[in-house]
Structure formats: C-alpha cells, structure tokens
Design a protein around this nucleic acid. Structure first.
Lengths: 245, 245
DNA sequence: CGAGTGATTGACACTCATCAACCCAAGTGG
DNA sequence: CCACTTGGGTTGATGAGTGTCAATCACTCG
C-alpha cells in the first residue's frame, strides 16, 4: 500500500497542474513534497473529518470524490460542495482552526494531507507556492459564488442542467469524458446541494431523458445533447463563465 | 479631505482588530501601514470596481457599506454579499486576477486599498500578517457557507429573520446597537440576496411587525423581541453558530 | 428468497412568484 | 404653492412550481 503512494510523487502526479506544485521549480516541488503526508485511501462513507474537529491540515483530492456538508442543531444536513481530484478541502477551517463542515468520501478515494502550519511556513519561503495557494483559494470562493447563484431564483430544470454541466466541465478538465460519467453522489445529495427534494431531482432527470437530452441509468449519465443542455442554462450564466464543450 | 484620512492610521483605527493589524507588533503595523492606500470616500451607488476588471488590490471597508453582485448574460444581477466595516472585498479576484463580482457603495463609505502584490510580499515577511489574512479569508468562506445554507430550503420567514439577525450580530460586533439600525440596502437588494421577491420581503417585514417582533419604518429597523426572532431561526442554525444577544 | 436501500411516479397542498393597483415621500417645474 | 412625476415600498388576487405524502419499482446483499 504505502509503496504505491510513495511512487506517485508530486512531480509525476496526474493532477500536479491543478494542485500546489503548479508553477514551482523542481527544487521547490521537492520542498513541498517533504511536508505532504500521503493518506491511505478513504473508503465510501468514511468521514475525513467532522464539523468542529480541530483542524491541523487541508486535504487535496487525488482520486475519487467527497461531499462536504454542515449539520444544523437538529442534525439536518446541508451539502456545501462536492470535491473532485485537484480540489482542496478544509479551507473553511482558516477562520478559527476548526472545520466548519464535515467531509465524507462518496467512493474509494485517495488524497494528500497538507499540515497547515508547515504549508504556511513554506508559503512564506516560496512566493510562487503562496500565489498558487491563493489561486486555489480563489477557485474555492468562485465555486461558492456559483453555488449561491445556482440556489437563488433558478428553476428546478435550470438547477439540474447546471449541475450536470458543472460536472461535465470538471470531468473534462480532468481529462475524462465530458459526456459520459458516473455520478458518485446519491439523488439525496444532489437534491440537497441544489436546494430541491429528491423527487424533484428524479423528475427533472426523467424529463431530460424524455427529451432525449441525456440518458440516465442509475448513477450513469450520458449527455446526448450538450448543446440543448447549455441552452437551458445559458440565460442565467454569469458573464465570465465559459463552459467547456 | 486627505488629512482626515492620514490621521486615522492603522494603530488608531476603530476596526483594527477586525482588520489585518490584528496580532501584529507596532513595528509590523507600520510596515503594513506603508503599503496601505487610503481611498477617498465612496459615494452612494458608486462602483468600487466591476466584474471582469483587472484586480490589483483588495479593499477593507472602514465605514459605510457595500454590495457585491454578479450579472448574468442578460444583465440580471445576483447579490453575493453585503460588506460592513472590517470586511475585506475583492478576494474573488484571487483566482485569475480579475474581479468576479461588481461592488457598489450603498451609502457614503470609506475604505483602505491593499495592493495585492505588496500585501503578498509582506505576508511572506510577517508570519502573523499571513495568519491574519488567512483568518479573514476563512471568515469570507464561512459567510458564503452561511449564505448557501440560507438560500437552500429555508422559508421566506426564516430567511428574513436570519437576515435581520445576521445584521444585528454584525452591528453588535462593530460596537453599534444590535436592536436598532438602519438598513443601508433597498428592499430589492435584500430580496435578491435572499432569493425572494421584493413583495415577499415586504410581506415578511410587515408580518414580523404585526407580531410585534420588530418595528419597521422605511429603512429603520427596531428589534423589539430578539428572542422571538431567534426562535424563528433557531431550528436551522448550524451548530457552530452562536448569535450575539 | 426476503430485507433493505435507493430511485421513480402519482395525487394533492401550499408557499411564494407574478401581475396589478395603490401609497408615500421627495423632488421638480410651471 | 400646488400639480405632477418618480422611485421605493406596500397590499391584494391569482396561479404556477415544488414540496409533501404515499405507493411502487429496481437493485443489492445477506
């Protein structure tokens, strides 16, 4: 087990360019390497950490996917985000050193742990690492803005279409197919993320298949007509947003 | 004009503890001071910057308030946040060096401009400045999480009550009254922020006044019964959230 | 095979958006 | 000085879009 992970060092990591090494010299990468703790794989439904836990690290997804959520006083969950490879989890702990969300693995996954004190220390020594961290933090903020826009005043149909397109875009960026993928999350999770009920999500998915725009079979999604999907979403896209095709 | 602003240096600034100087030595504060550009006051409805503008700085609100929003391709706006003194604007530019939101002053306001390259440079020299910046970034992320939770699956009544309590808490933190304040934003802005229509906001406000919980006269809000307001919000508060009273 | 979880479908109810009229305060101009 | 305008806000009537509840189906696993 261990050996597998040691082989995949930062220099040869598939997602290095989405991750902290981006823009660093070989020498700098090995310094970064020295503070990274490679974690054993996470299993489905395994907690990475829980809301309120003391936070010592942030975590970069290497493979697989995760879901972050907050629970209210009644234990009702609100999904905040889904994390795919190249996305950094735990930034919500920057405020007071405790995680504000819980994070759970949606499937088998691997990740790298970055101890916060050592990361900050290294950032002050390597300016381009500092920039890249800021860049990644900025990405997180933007994705939350997109989530806010999505939740506020969009129809169920628009939400669903946008969700599928978001995934499509992210998979494409990772070098996977943008038209054929498996949802790693359940309908509940999607519904909760979109501020809908599970029934509405289900109905929207069947509607989209009836129109021939997508084909759904359980968790597997095939986008037959990316163009139509975009037409549903188009009118409400922020100006900056250029979706991949 | 200028002189007024020069007098209020970071050491004597009312909001220093919410801002970057927090935790810095006197010496470090003066280094920080040297990169701060004090801006002339902003006038109501004046743009601080626009979506897509090249971003050279982030901005700390000193007095007054601002609204940030994104516009979609049809020019329809979505309000992302309201900024009060001690809150940092422009972090959405960290991703690619352009602002992702537009920001507009809601009233007469003053602010400090922090050029990003110089700030990052200084952060690598002053570890506690780096920490405090991270702390402030964390605050921004948390407030966006709260916004997400608010938008998703809350009733109009809960949204309105939460909004008032959020303002109450923030004003209290600034040393103002937590039960009596003026809204600096219009009903449109509130509605848009909460994912409601202006009519619904109006109806909720009148409902709350009919129940004697608040008194509304135009923009002025008086909270008569903070406890009732909290009871409306209580069941859906994230566990970490401790509202001031 | 039966139990259990996840997903779909249908019938109905309810919240909130929509549309329209109206109110109020603060200008503005003849 | 008063009619008129204008922008922000409130109120009322109506209906669409989703949530809710319940039954059923599809898979998986023991």
């Amino acid at each position: 087990m261990e050996s597998i992970f040691h082989k995949t060092d930062c220099l040869h990591c598939r997602i290095a360019d989405l991750c902290l090494p981006h823009g660093l010299s070989g020498d700098e990468v090995s310094k970064l390497e020295s503070i990274v703790r490679r974690k054993l794989p996470a299993k489905p439904d395994e907690y990475l950490y829980r809301q309120q836990d003391l936070a010592h690290s942030v975590f970069m997804v290497k493979t697989g996917s995760f879901r972050s959520f907050v629970s209210d006083t009644n234990g009702v969950e609100q999904t905040i985000g889904f994390y795919l490879p190249g996305e950094l989890m735990g930034l919500d702990a920057l405020e007071n050193g405790r995680y504000h969300c819980s994070v759970i693995a949606l499937e088998s996954a691997t990740l790298c742990e970055l101890p916060l004190p050592r990361l900050q220390d290294l950032c002050s020594k390597i300016p381009s690492l500092q920039s890249q961290l800021m860049h990644i933090i900025g990405r997180e903020i933007l994705s939350e803005h997109d989530h806010i826009v999505l939740l506020s005043k969009r129809s169920a149909r628009e939400k669903m279409a946008t969700f599928l397109l978001m995934l499509s875009t992210r998979y494409k960026m990772l070098g996977f197919s943008s038209t054929e993928f498996n949802l790693s999350m359940r309908r509940d999770d999607i519904a909760n993320f979109l501020g809908l009920t599970i029934e509405t999500v289900s109905r929207q998915l069947t509607d989209l298949s009836k129109n021939g725009i997508i084909t759904v079979k359980q968790r597997s999604i095939h986008i037959n007509n990316l163009h139509s999907l975009k037409e549903i979403v188009e009118p409400c896209l922020p100006q900056h947003f250029a979706l991949a095709n």
